[in-house]
Simulated assay, not measured.
Amino acid sequence: MKTRFWVWLLLGLLATGCGEKPVTRVYEAAHERPITCLRLAVFPASESLEKALKGLYPFRDDCPVLLEVRHKENICCNSTQNVEQKTLSNFPRHFLRLELRRGMTPLYSYYIDLDHPADAGDAQKAFETLREDLPLANP
Rank of each mutant, 00 (worst) to 15 (best):
C37M: 05
E99L: 04
L53I: 02
V26T: 09
T105E: 10
S89Y: 04
P135W: 00
S79M: 11
G103I: 00
R102Q: 08
R97W: 01
G12M: 12
E68C: 02
R70A: 07
G12S: 14
L56W: 03
C18V: 11
A30Y: 04
Y111G: 08
A41S: 12
A126F: 02
T3I: 13
A118H: 09
L100Q: 05
D133L: 03
S79V: 07
F43H: 15
R4G: 06
E47Q: 13
V65A: 05
R93Y: 00
T36D: 13
A41I: 10
Y110T: 01
Q124I: 09
C76N: 15
Y57W: 15
S89T: 04
F95H: 05
K72A: 11
Y108C: 09
R97H: 02
P139Q: 01
G12R: 08
D122M: 05
R131C: 01
T80G: 07
F43E: 12
E73W: 05
L9N: 10
Y111K: 07
V23D: 09
R102Y: 03
N90C: 10
G55L: 02
A29R: 01
F43S: 14
K2M: 12
N90F: 00
P58A: 07
L88G: 00
R33P: 03
T36V: 13
I112Y: 03
T87R: 13
G17A: 10
D61R: 05
I35P: 00
L11K: 08
A137W: 01
S48F: 01
Q81G: 06
T16K: 10
K86L: 07
L14H: 06
N82Q: 12
P58K: 02
A120N: 08
P64A: 11
Q124F: 04
H94Q: 05
G55K: 08
K51Q: 15
S46M: 04
T80L: 05
V23Y: 01
L13Y: 07
Q124D: 09
